[in-house]
Computed example of a mutant assay.
Amino acid sequence: MRMRKTACLLLSAVLLSLAAGCGSAPSAVQSNAKPAAASEGKKEEALKTVKFSEVIRSIFYAPHYIAMQKGFFKEEGLNVDMNTAQGSDKGAAALIAGVADISLVGPETAIYIYNQKGDKTLKIFHQLTMKDGSFLLSRTKSDAFKWSDLEGKSVIGWRPGSAPQMVLNNKLLQEKVNKVDVVTNIASPAMAGAFTSGKGDYIQVFEPIASSLEKEGKAFYVTSVGQAFGPFPETSYVATSDFIKKNPETIQKFVNAVSKGTKWLNTASPDEIAAALMPFFEGTPKDIIIQSIDRYKKQDTWPAVPELNAEQFEALQKVLIDNGVLKPDQKVADLNAVVDMSFVKNIGKGK
């Protein structure tokens, strides 16, 4: 269950292979649709374009899509040019290579880059989610799931060093569950297809894929990994220190827009939310989107104050150490070395 290769090596390999873009085309469920959001009083030519890389396409990141669809970015004077990286390592590599201005990735990537002592460092400036976003599904129905049920079974999981992989591994360690074959070499867009073709006894997936597999009768819901594990700062907005220093107004506007998206999400009706999200998930039925949002809301996924504090940062580094991707002597002692929450603290204080 322990990683034999560090996440730093994984990230270095991605940096070497990165060319003009930062990801492959998303799957049908993870469509890379970019709807044009309407915003009165803003001329298109006056908007500043921000090159943005999301880790995967998932309803887990609903506040961001809502900010795009409802025109909140444009209200702030920004045009978001979005790309799906298919991995935090690729999203971080895109920042280092300069093909992305802002990435939505696991905050651990900022720690990995910091410890490489390179020319560039990353800083986390907005904490979008505070739970793991994955759900465990089974090939057979189980009325009373216990974590010990996984012993001797195989689980299609996420790549080594990724946040959902480490959270699942830590949960198995907590529950003292051994002899679980967690498959970590299947690319995220291919995971559902691998499961439906017969591979694995369980699968760990995000929404709306989890609900889609259920509706199709190809899997049965077992548990929310995020709810079972508890609070965890899984996904953050990150940029290079240089970009933040040179573009503080852009970062503030970006944070303001996403915060508007979160606020709208918490007050809108299920039908309104589904309508706003459907352009980003072409082919996904409305009821699946509504169920996905409901699940994420029930586990308190999106914090009212999107701040990564010292306690959460410590919890993050403990998970990294427990999973063998960070040595104890590599812990980042100074939160401010990789975190800048000043923009979050300025939300609502004017543009």
Results as ranks from 00 to 15, higher is better:
Leu168Met: 15
Pro63Asn: 07
Lys176Gly: 02
Thr49His: 04
Lys297Ser: 05
Ile288Ser: 06
Ala276Trp: 11
His64Trp: 08
Glu307Ser: 08
Ile209Val: 15
Val225Ile: 15
Ile156Val: 08
Thr129Trp: 09
Val29Thr: 10
Lys318Trp: 08
Tyr112Val: 01
Phe72Met: 14
Gly283Gln: 05
Ile96Gln: 05
Ser236Arg: 05
Val177Ile: 04
Asp101Met: 12
Thr284Ala: 10
Ile66Val: 13
Ile66Pro: 00
Met68Val: 08
Leu316Ser: 02
Ala46Leu: 13
Glu216Cys: 05
Val258Phe: 00
Val55Lys: 00
Asp101Tyr: 14
Ala194Ile: 06
Glu307Ile: 12
Pro164Glu: 11
Met191Ser: 11
Ser342His: 03
Ala37Tyr: 04
Glu214Tyr: 10
Val222Cys: 00
Asn32Met: 07
Ser12Glu: 10
Glu214Gln: 15
Lys286Tyr: 02
Ala19Ser: 15
Val167Asp: 00
Ile203Cys: 05
Ser53Thr: 00
Gly324Ser: 01
Asp149Thr: 02
Val99Met: 02
Cys22Ala: 14
Ile113Trp: 13
Thr267Met: 10
Glu175Ala: 14
Val29Ile: 06
Gly157Phe: 13
Glu314Tyr: 01
Gly200Leu: 00
Thr184Phe: 00
Glu234Ala: 07
Phe254Leu: 12
Ile56Met: 09
Lys327Phe: 07
Ala67Asp: 07
Asp89Glu: 09
Leu47Pro: 04
Val182Trp: 06
Lys351Thr: 14
Ser103Val: 01
Val238Ser: 13
Gln127Phe: 05
Cys22Lys: 15
Ile289Val: 10
Lys345Ala: 09
Thr140His: 13
Lys297Asn: 08
Asp271Ile: 07
Thr235Glu: 03
Phe60Thr: 01
Ala304Gln: 06
Gly23Asn: 10
Ala92Met: 09
Gly91Tyr: 00
Val105Trp: 00
Glu75Gly: 07
Glu54Gln: 13
Gly261Ala: 02
Gly261Leu: 03
Leu265Asp: 05
Ala28Asn: 07
Ala315Asp: 15
Leu11Glu: 12
Phe220Thr: 15
Gly283Tyr: 04
Asp143Pro: 11
Gln291Val: 04
Asn185Thr: 11
Arg2Phe: 00
Tyr112Ser: 09
Tyr112Asp: 12
Ile111Cys: 00
Gly41Gln: 11
Asn336Arg: 04
Ala94Gly: 14
Gln69Gly: 05
Thr109Glu: 10
Pro63Ala: 04
Gly348Gln: 12
Gln204Ile: 02
